[in-house]
């Protein structure tokens, strides 16, 4: 390979990705950070503002609320998608006639545009017009009727539910792949040792699927930070910015309020948070790997 690895070849092969990536991703981050130190309305000149924007972020109660909301969505999604995705994959593993059909159906929500997903769920979750409350009412369970969206508490939980609905099929398919790679022999060995179904799952399947869990968790985290249309469609971040996520709050501040500088400060803070999260994640994974 030495012979083919001339500098010129390497250069040609890497440069296209490198340039596009650097310009649109890296440079964008730098631009965002630059503007985060300014006051800018989108027109004219950006005025230097020092760290004032960041001080404001710290004091901004809407920011902390949006952070809390994002946290709720993240934690719920991690829990539900990993557990249910895993369980579903286990169920799907067993050879059955309807398996493929079920797999395809459950996967289909992830094909649909998120805006449309949001629209669908408005008609389910809206406290007045949505069918969830209507069904509860008809069933006589009036006490269970809630302000699923539009209230001050439940909205982030609903985002997690919708995210779950959309991603479950997709992620459980990934789990399925990972599970299918576990050799039969190990199960047979376990059976010989007298393990029952449950023990097999816990002591064989889970550890062997570690790599898959990693990928799924990574996908969940990146996915949560991509949630946008659900929020805008369901609640518009409201009422009064109480159900924003950090991503939507940064967007609203930038584009609706025309406070580009402050919006970019928020964006930079989000970026730093995701960096920290991914570092923590990497560290944990590295430790675990060393343990192994």
């Amino acid at each position: 390979m030495h012979w083919l690895s001339k500098k010129r070849n390497l250069f040609v092969m890497i440069v296209p990705s490198f340039v596009i990536y650097t310009v649109y991703i890296i440079a964008s981050v730098c631009i965002a950070v630059y503007y985060s130190f300014t006051k800018y309305t989108g027109i004219g000149k950006a005025a230097w503002n020092g760290i004032e924007n960041y001080v404001r972020v710290f004091h901004d109660k809407f920011f902390w609320i949006s952070l809390k909301n994002t946290g709720i969505v993240l934690i719920l999604s991690l829990l539900t998608l990993t557990i249910f995705g895993f369980l579903l994959a286990n169920v799907l593993r067993v050879k059955r006639r309807g398996n493929d059909l079920c797999k395809a159906l459950i996967f289909s929500p992830s094909i649909i545009s998120p805006i449309i997903v949001g629209i669908i769920w408005i008609y389910i979750l809206d406290p007045e017009v949505g069918i969830l409350n209507q069904i509860l009412y008809k069933l006589g369970k009036e006490g269970w009727m809630q302000m699923w969206i539009g209230g001050t508490v439940l909205s982030p939980y609903m985002y997690a539910v919708i995210f779950l609905w959309r991603q479950l099929g997709y992620l459980s398919t990934i789990f399925l792949a990972g599970l299918n790679m576990i050799p039969e022999e190990i199960y047979e060995a376990a059976e010989i040792d007298g393990a029952n179904a449950f023990q097999k799952m816990v002591y064989v399947t889970v550890p062997m699927a570690r790599n898959t869990f990693n990928i799924v968790i990574l996908l969940i985290i990146t996915g949560v930070f991509k949630i946008f249309e659900f929020v805008t469609q369901l609640t518009a971040g409201g009422p009064n910015h109480l159900s924003e996520t950090v991503v939507t709050y940064s967007y609203t501040t930038t584009f609706s309020n025309g406070e580009y500088g402050y919006g970019m400060a928020l964006a930079t803070v989000v970026f730093i948070i995701t960096l920290i999260l991914s570092e923590i994640y990497n560290l944990i994974m590295r430790d675990k790997e060393e343990e192994q």
């Binding site: 440079a27 930070f225 940064s250 967007y251 970026f271 995701t274």
Partner: peptide
Amino acid sequence: LMISPFILLFP
């Protein structure tokens, strides 16, 4: 991997 594209919208 970890960067949300929305953050980059304005840049």
